[in-house]
Simulated assay, not measured.
Amino acid sequence: MTTENSSGEHLVYISNPHISKMEEDVLYHFNLGTKTHDLPAIFGDVKFICVGGSPSRMKAFIRFIAEELGLAKPDMDYPNLCEGTDRFAMYKIGPVLAVSHGMGVPSIGIMLHELFKLLYHAKCSDVTIFRIGTSGGIGLEPGSVVLTKQAVDSCFKPEFEQFVLGKRVVRSTDLCADLIEELLSCAKGMNEFNTVVGNTMCTLDFYEGQGRLDGAFCSYTEKDKFEYLQAAHDAGVRNIEMESTIFAAMCRASGIPAAVVCVTLLNRLKGDQITSPHDVLVEYQQRPQKLVACFIKKRLGKA
C-alpha cells in the first residue's frame, strides 16, 4: 500500500491510527524522537536505505558510498546518529542512510518499526530499501550474490507468520520484481561476480534451524540434513539467512520497494563451517555493497 503527496511522490505508509494521537513519538531504540529531534530536517532527503546486521559493516558501507557518490572529504567523520544507545547504529551521507539491525527476526523487526516511523515523521518520499548481508548458499559457490525473489520460511512457504494478541497473522513476503531486474542489470554490467535470482530461506536459528551438524545440540542425522537442504534447493531456495521474511513483509506493508542482496560464504551442500581465509571473506562481504552502490549511482545519474 502506498500514499502520495501533492507532487505525486510516494510516501512511507504506516498502518497505526494511534500514532497521530500521540503528543510525542519516542523512537526508543534509536535514541531519537519527534520532540527532541527535527526529523524532517535531518532525514527528509533520504531516498536510499541499506540495512545490515553489523554496525561496523554499515559504517564501512556509508564510507564506501560517500566515495562512490563523490561526497567524501579528507578526514570526514561519519557520526552514529543513534549515539546514546547500543542497540543499533545509523549513518547518513547525502540521500543514503545505513542502519544496523542485529541478528535475527526479532531484532530487525524492532529496528524496522522505528525506521518506518522515522521515515513517516520525516516525510520521506520515493524511498528504496535494501538488506545487504551474508548467507549460506545452497548449490552455489562461495562468493555468489543472491537477489531474493521470495523470502520463504523453514517450510519453504513465502510468508511471514506472527502472533498478534494471541492470533496468527500471516503476511506476504514477495519482493519488488522491478527492483530485482534493475539490480540484475547492474550486476551484468559490472560483471565482477556470479549473481543469481532465487528464493531465500529465513530461519529462526543459525544451528538446528538451518540443519547444521556442529551446534551444541543435534537431533538428526547427516542424511536427514542433506535431504532437507536438497528439498530446499528443489523448492528454489539458493541461500539461507535469518531476517528476510520479516524484512520483505514489513517493507511490502509500508509500500517501500525493497530488495535482499546477500553474498554466500559457503555452499551448505558441502559443509557447515566457514573455512575461507579472512581476507577472502572481507572481499565477499563487499560484493553486495558494490552492487547496491552501482544501483544508487545509476538512479542518481552518477554512473
Rank of each mutant, 00 (worst) to 15 (best):
S7W: 11
L11I: 02
I14F: 02
S20N: 09
E23Y: 08
V26A: 13
L27V: 11
F30C: 15
L32V: 01
G33F: 04
T36Q: 14
A41Q: 12
G44V: 04
K47Q: 12
I65T: 05
P79K: 08
C82Y: 13
T85M: 06
A89V: 03
M90R: 00
Y91V: 10
I93G: 03
M103D: 07
G104H: 03
S107L: 09
I108C: 12
F116W: 13
L118Q: 06
T134W: 01
G136K: 00
G137R: 06
G137H: 14
P142E: 04
S144Q: 04
Q162F: 12
V164D: 03
R168G: 02
V170Q: 06
R171I: 13
S172H: 01
A177I: 08
A177P: 14
I180R: 13
S185M: 09
A187T: 06
M190A: 11
N199P: 07
C202D: 13
T203Q: 00
D205W: 02
F206I: 04
L213W: 02
G215L: 02
A216E: 01
K223W: 08
D224A: 09
E227R: 04
Y228P: 00
Y228K: 15
A231Q: 08
D234N: 15
G236I: 14
V237A: 00
M242I: 03
S254Q: 01
G255L: 07
I256Y: 06
V260R: 01
L265P: 04
N267Y: 01
R268L: 02
D272T: 08
D279E: 15
Q285H: 03
P288A: 01
K290H: 14
V292A: 03
I296R: 14
I296C: 11
L300A: 08
A303C: 09
